[in-house]
């Protein structure tokens, strides 16, 4: 199921989809918001119910959990590749492995590490706006969170 705001990613790629459980014929889908006020959450809940109904699952409960809080570390490698190919610089932190600091954000267009932040808040809560110093293209950066 694609994310309504970043349709190149599925909600599983994004880490928003936490669990799908069956309980006596009823499906319970657990989702967690990227940001508290993420306006896409209602659309995601509706999309999940609709997609499952189309597959014949009529009895569906979508549960929103806040804790543990969503983090970009949950984004799948596949999701990171898809984001970069789409023109959005992916977040850098991962759930496993060392914490890397002061990494430059690479331009998703030309790959240059010489980029600068234009605005800390971008088109959605999860993104910041940057610009490449080499190819001059502005681009979205999916913030580490």
């Amino acid at each position: 199921m694609p994310d309504p705001e970043v349709p190149v990613l599925t909600i599983a790629d994004l880490g928003v989809l936490r669990a799908v459980e069956e309980d006596g014929g009823r499906l319970r889908v657990t989702v967690t918001p990227t940001y508290s006020g993420c306006p896409a959450m209602d659309a995601i809940r509706d999309d999940v119910v609709r997609a499952l109904a189309a597959e014949g699952f009529g009895d569906v409960e979508v549960v929103t959990v806040l804790s543990p809080a969503w983090t970009t570390a949950w984004m799948s490698d596949e999701g990171r590749r898809k984001l970069a190919a789409y023109g959005i610089a992916p977040p850098q932190r991962r759930a496993d492995g060392p914490v890397l600091v002061a990494l430059s954000v690479r331009c998703p267009q030309c790959g240059s590490p010489r980029t600068r932040e234009l605005a800390r808040f971008g088109s959605t809560s999860c993104k910041a706006l940057r610009q490449c110093e080499d190819c001059r293209e502005p681009f979205d950066h999916f913030k580490d969170h």
Binding site: P33, Y35, S36, G37, C38, P39, S125
Partner: peptide
């Protein structure tokens, strides 16, 4: 964006 975070809280 900040307003939206706060509303979400």
């Amino acid at each position: 964006n900040i307003a939206l975070d706060l509303l979400g809280q």
